[in-house]
């Protein structure tokens, strides 16, 4: 392990916030030397309860994260917050403004807040987020809150593997209810109608409750997602949200689902890493190998179909990995 990586690892386990911050940057930049650190800290992670917060921009996710964190802090718990916002696909830049809604938390050394750009490109976002979760977990955080905009598939993917997934909506968001119907309903363990101070809150609440009641599947012992009204700005409903998260955590433990969920997350994490590695290796074959380029030429000449070409690439990859172990 490189000097700096091992220093940072030591620092992390000793509670050094700068070390944690540096390691997270290395993950974001896909710096290879962080891998050894991730390998070693895997054994130290697995204690934190991970809460996903998702919903459309402006629904109040950051404000809720702030309120929730204040309650955890009052109970003496340490909290990590990861806010993922979209990176502009055109410029690669991002404006990360979630901290603006979390001012009351900043300066508290036991709350670690990190803003991340989704950086898009070749997937990798949920992989990076998982790594960051593991870093904060090993860093000793009791709760880790992951905020993502519930729009893209990747963002949904991230919160799906949180222990408890909270879907946040607000009154008058008719389109949003449609979106929830279309996919987020399945992943929500808890639903929040924030901005309950606004007109139409009752209606949104009732709509959501109806959708959940008529949701197919699930026996009597299954978890029924509660719908909670909150006014995040003045802190109303946050206690109910905290209780619901605690109840869901109990449910996961008692039902044995916690183990299953962890297993699912590990599998998803592994698949994501493999996806990236295999597609990168395949791209290298097609770009750099004479055999690979020949395959593309034959396809272009209509002598070979893409499915057969893919078979050949897979064979090529497997053979190459056996011949050159450790690459």
């Amino acid at each position: 392990m490189t000097e700096t990586a091992s220093d940072l690892y030591e620092g992390l386990l000793n509670g050094d916030r700068r070390a944690a911050a540096r390691l997270i940057s290395m993950v974001e930049n896909q710096d290879r030397s962080v891998r050894q650190v991730l390998r070693m800290l895997h054994q130290h992670a697995g204690r934190a309860h991970v809460v996903g917060l998702t919903g459309s921009p402006g629904a109040g996710k950051s404000t809720l994260a702030c309120g929730l964190t204040k309650r955890y802090r009052d109970a003496g718990l340490a909290v990590g917050i990861i806010c993922v916002d979209p990176t502009s696909p055109f410029t690669g830049g991002a404006l990360l403004g979630d901290r603006v809604r979390m001012q009351e938390l900043s300066g508290d050394p036991d709350v670690f807040i990190r803003s991340m750009g989704s950086r898009g490109a070749l997937g990798g976002l949920s992989m990076a987020t998982n790594d960051v979760i593991n870093i904060l977990d090993a860093f000793g955080k009791d709760f880790i809150i992951v905020e993502t905009v519930g729009a893209g598939q990747v963002e949904v993917e991230i919160v799906k593997y949180a222990h408890t997934c909270v879907v946040v909506t607000m009154p008058g968001a008719g389109d949003e209810i449609q979106a929830i119907k279309a996919g987020i309903l399945e992943i929500g363990d808890i639903f929040v109608v924030n901005k309950a101070d606004r007109d139409g809150a009752h209606r949104t609440l009732a709509d959501l409750e109806m959708m959940i009641e008529t949701k197919p599947g699930g026996d009597d012992s299954a978890w029924r997602p509660p719908v909670i009204a909150t006014k995040a700005l003045d802190g109303e409903g946050i206690e109910e949200l905290e209780d619901a998260i605690a109840q869901h955590a109990d449910y996961l433990r008692e039902s044995g689902l916690l183990g299953l969920k962890t297993e699912q997350r590990m599998k998803a994490e592994l698949l994501e890493i493999l996806n990236l590695k295999v597609s990168q290796a395949a791209a290298r074959v097609l770009d750099e190998d004479e055999e690979g380029r020949e395959l593309v030429r034959r396809m272009t000449a209509r002598e070979l179909d893409p499915h057969s070409a893919a078979e050949e690439v897979m064979e090529h990859l497997l053979k190459r990995e056996v011949e050159k172990p450790g690459t």
Binding site: L96, G97, V100, Q103, S106, P109, I113
Partner: peptide, 20 residues
């Protein structure tokens, strides 16, 4: 990647945020 703090930060708050 631009992170914005919002208004009225104390020195201590913003140095901690810059580090995190």
């Amino acid at each position: 990647e631009v992170i914005y703090s919002g208004l009225k930060q104390t020195n201590d708050m913003l140095v901690e945020a810059a580090i995190q």
